[in-house]
Amino acid sequence: MFIINCPYCGERDQTEFTCHGEAHIARPEKPSEVTDEEWGKYLFFRNNPKGMHFERWTHDHGCRRWFNVMRNTVTDNIIKTYKMGEPRPEIPNE
C-alpha cells in the first residue's frame, strides 16, 4: 500500500486513489490517417517497464483531479508526483 502525495491535497492513503495506467501517451492527431497497426499500438500497446513507470492517477475520494506519478515498479517506490501538463521528469541516476 502506498502513501501518495497528491499535488493538490498532499499525502493521502492509496485507497483514496485509482490508477489509470501509463501516462504521456499522445492520441494521434489525425486518427483517420493512421494505419490499423498504428491505431492498435496507440490503443493497446504499453511500455510496461520493469523499473521506472510514468502513470496517471486520480484522487477519487479527495479533490477528484488527475495527476501523474513516477514510480519504480520493482520496489513500488514513488519517486515523484506532478500535475497534468507538466513535462515528464528525468529518470534519476541510481
Binding site: 500500500m1 485507497t15 501509463e22 513507470h53 502513470e55
Partner: peptide
C-alpha cells in the same frame, strides 16, 4: 491491483 508492478506484493486493501 490496478497498477503495474513487478514487486510480487499486493495492497492490503
Amino acid at each position: 491491483d490496478a497498477y503495474n508492478s513487478y514487486s510480487q506484493r499486493g495492497s492490503f486493501d
